[in-house]
Design a protein around this nucleic acid. Structure first.
Lengths: 336, 336
DNA sequence: TTCTTGCGCTCAAGCGCTTTAGTTCTGCGC
DNA sequence: GCGCAGAACTAAAGCGCTTGAGCGCAAGAA
C-alpha cells in the first residue's frame, strides 16, 4: 500500500479509502489508485486486515467422523463444492478440519475462536443433545446448523432443515401403495438428529396406517453394518418385503447381501436408498432413491452464513423435500 | 498478552519469550507466565502472529475437478483425513478449495500468495505440462506435489511418487499368468500425469511380453464413461478377457455393464480396479483391486510439507508400491 | 578494584492495514 | 472581505504480536 500511495501521489489512507469504496476521495483519484493497485497486483494482507478489526475472511467447517466412515460418502464433497461456490464469490476461505468426535470438534471451535481464525462456522451432522449450538452461542461465533431442526434455545444460530418426516411419509406411502406391510428402516448413527427424526417419523407413519411390522435399526452407516443388518432381518421368520436404507452405501451393500441370500430385488424385497448418487445407477437393479440437490444444499447453507456475517437475522430455512426417484429396486409385493 | 503481562508482573516481551520457549526469561518466570496464560485461556492471534513475520499457520489444498466428478471418489476425503492428522499435531489449519480447472487453481495460488494466506500448499492431480510447479516456484510458495514424478526443473518442490510402472507390471504379470492376452486398460483423465504414466507402463509391458491386443482408453473417471467404454470394448469382435480400471467407481460400473451384456465376471472377463475402497467389497463378485494406504499417503504428504516449512530440503519421496489384492473378479481365462 | 561477560528483563519499533481526528483548500452566501 | 460548509486529503494511533537494542545486575577474570 505504501508503494501504491507513493506511485499515485497520495497518502496511504487515501489508498485505503479508494480501494475499499469508502467516501473521502474523488473519483479521479480513486480510479488512479485502482489502476496503480491493479498494475502492482496488490492484494490486501488478510492478516493486517483482520488485525485492524475486519474479519478473518474465512469460515470453518469441521466434520466429526472416523476417517473410514468418511470415505465412501459422496455427501460431504458435494456439500463442500456447493459451499465453495458461494464462498468463492465473496473471496471467503474455507478452513476445513476432520476430527474423530464431537468433543474434538468443540475443542476446534474454541481454538478457532480464540485465535480469531474464522468469522463463522458451518455445523454438520447435528445430534440429539448436541453441545455445539450452545458452545457456539456462548462463544459468539456466527454459525449455521446444516440439517438440524430449528431450536428456540439458540436464537442466534441459523438452521437449515429438511422435512424428513414428510419424506419418510412419502416413502412409506409409496411402499404401502405397492402392497408392502413389513418394512425395515436401516437407519444411520443413533446419536444424529436426523436419524432420530426419521425413526420417529417412521413410527408415526406406521401407527397411522396400523402397520405392526415396521421398525428401524440403527447402524454406523458403513457397508459392513448395512450388509449385516440386511442378512439378519432377511433371515428372520417373516422377513420384511421392503428395506429403507439411510444412505446409498448401505443400500448397495444391502442389495448385494440380499442377492447372496437368494432374495431377488425387487421381486422378493424392495429397496429404497435415502440419498441418491452415482452409486445408485452403478449396479443392477438401479436403486430407487430419495434425491436431494446436495450442492444446492451447500450453497444455501453458505448463503445463510454470509447473510448472518453481513448482520442479517438468524432464521430457520427449510430446504425442499427430497424427491423419491423410483428406479428398478422397488416393485409390487409378490405373494410369498 | 497485555493482561498476562500485567498479572504475571512482567513485560509483554517477556510473555512472548516465555510462551514461545525462547531464551531470555528464567524458568520460574516462564512457568508463572504459562500458568497465567493457561488460566486466562489465551491463544495467540494468528493474524497478529502472521503480521509480525511468522507464517500463516495454514496450508492450502485446492482440488481442480468438476463437482460431479468429485462426488463418488473416496480418494480425496481419505487423503485429507490423513493430511489432517499430521497438520493437527502442529496446529496447522487446512484451507481447502474446490475449483473447476487448473487455471482457476493457479489463480487461487496467486491470490493466496498475495494475501499471505498460506505457508505452503499441497498440489494434487499433477498433469503432463503442468503449469503449477512452475508458478509455485516462481511465487516462492512452499509446495509438495502429491503423486507426481520428481522433476529436475523444479528443485524447490518436494514430490511424492508411487511406482505406477511397477504396479502396472505386477497387474499385467498376474493377468498374464492367468492366461490373459487381450487386456484393455480403462484409464482416467488424459491430462493427468499418472494416467499417462500408467498408459506408458502398460505399453512397455505389452511390448516386453509381445502382446498385440493390449491397449488403454482414457475416460473422465465417471461411472458413465466407465460403463460406456466397457460396453464398447466388450461388443467388438474379439473382446478382451481382462479389464483394468483406473478407479473403483468405473470398475463397478464396468462390472454392471459387462453383466448386462451377458458377460460373467470373472468367467468371461476379469476385472481389476486401480484403487481399493469399500465399494470393491460391496458388490458380488468382490473386485480384485490395487490397494494403497491413502490416509498414510496423506500423512506422508503433510509430513513432507511441514518438513519443508521447517526449512528442510526438498526431496522426492517414493511411497510403497500398491499391492494387488486378488478377490473374486479375476480368474483364469476360459476358452471361448 | 575495575572490567568484562552473560543473564533476565524492558523498551520501542514495526508488520500492513483501518479509522478517527485533524488540516487544507475551494466555493459559496452575506 | 469575511466566515463557513463541505470535499479531498493527511497524520497518527492502534490492532496483537515479535524482536533487536539496551539496561541493570551479579558473578567471574584480571
Amino acid at each position: 500500500m505504501k508503494d501504491i500511495a507513493r506511485r499515485a501521489g497520495v497518502s496511504e489512507s487515501a489508498v485505503s479509502f479508494a480501494l475499499n469504496g469508502r467516501p473521502g476521495v474523488s473519483e479521479v483519484t480513486r480510479d488512479r489508485v485502482r489502476r496503480v493497485a491493479e498494475q502492482l497486483g496488490w492484494r490486501p494482507s488478510t492478516a493486517a486486515r483482520q488485525l485492524s478489526g475486519e474479519g478473518a475472511a474465512t469460515v470453518g467447517l469441521v466434520v466429526a467422523r472416523p476417517a473410514d466412515t468418511l470415505g465412501v460418502d459422496s455427501f460431504f464433497l458435494q456439500l463442500i463444492s456447493g459451499i465453495q461456490e458461494v464462498l468463492a464469490e465473496r473471496q471467503l476461505g474455507l478452513l476445513f478440519q476432520v476430527v474423530e468426535d464431537v468433543d474434538a470438534e468443540c475443542a476446534v471451535y474454541r481454538r478457532w475462536w480464540a485465535e480469531h481464525r474464522v468469522d463463522g462456522v458451518l455445523v454438520v451432522d447435528p445430534r440429539t443433545d448436541d453441545p455445539r449450538p450452545g458452545l457456539l452461542e456462548e462463544l459468539g461465533l456466527t454459525a449455521v446448523v446444516v440439517g438440524g431442526v430449528p431450536d428456540a434455545r439458540h436464537p442466534g444460530l441459523s438452521t437449515l432443515w429438511a422435512d424428513d418426516a414428510g419424506a419418510m411419509a412419502a416413502i412409506v406411502g409409496q411402499l404401502y401403495a405397492l402392497g408392502h406391510r413389513r418394512i425395515v428402516h436401516i437407519a444411520g448413527l443413533p446419536g444424529l438428529a436426523h436419524t432420530e427424526r426419521r425413526i420417529r417419523a417412521l413410527r408415526a407413519e406406521a401407527e397411522r396406517r396400523a402397520l405392526a411390522e415396521v421398525r428401524s435399526v440403527t447402524t454406523d452407516y458403513s457397508d459392513a453394518e448395512g450388509a449385516a443388518v440386511t442378512r439378519r432381518v432377511l433371515t428372520q421368520e417373516t422377513p420384511p418385503t421392503a428395506l429403507v436404507y439411510d444412505n446409498d452405501v448401505m443400500a448397495l451393500a444391502g442389495v448385494a447381501a440380499a442377492t447372496e441370500l437368494g432374495f431377488s430385488v425387487p421381486a422378493d424385497v424392495s429397496v429404497v436408498a435415502w440419498e441418491d448418487s452415482a452409486l445408485c445407477r452403478m449396479v443392477k437393479p438401479w436403486l430407487s432413491a430419495l434425491s436431494r440437490d446436495t450442492p444446492e444444499f451447500g450453497r444455501t447453507a453458505a448463503r445463510e452464513l454470509t447473510s448472518l456475517l453481513d448482520g442479517g437475522p438468524s432464521r430457520a430455512v427449510r430446504v425442499p423435500v427430497p424427491r423419491l426417484i423410483e428406479r428398478e429396486s422397488t416393485g409390487v409385493v409378490r405373494r410369498a
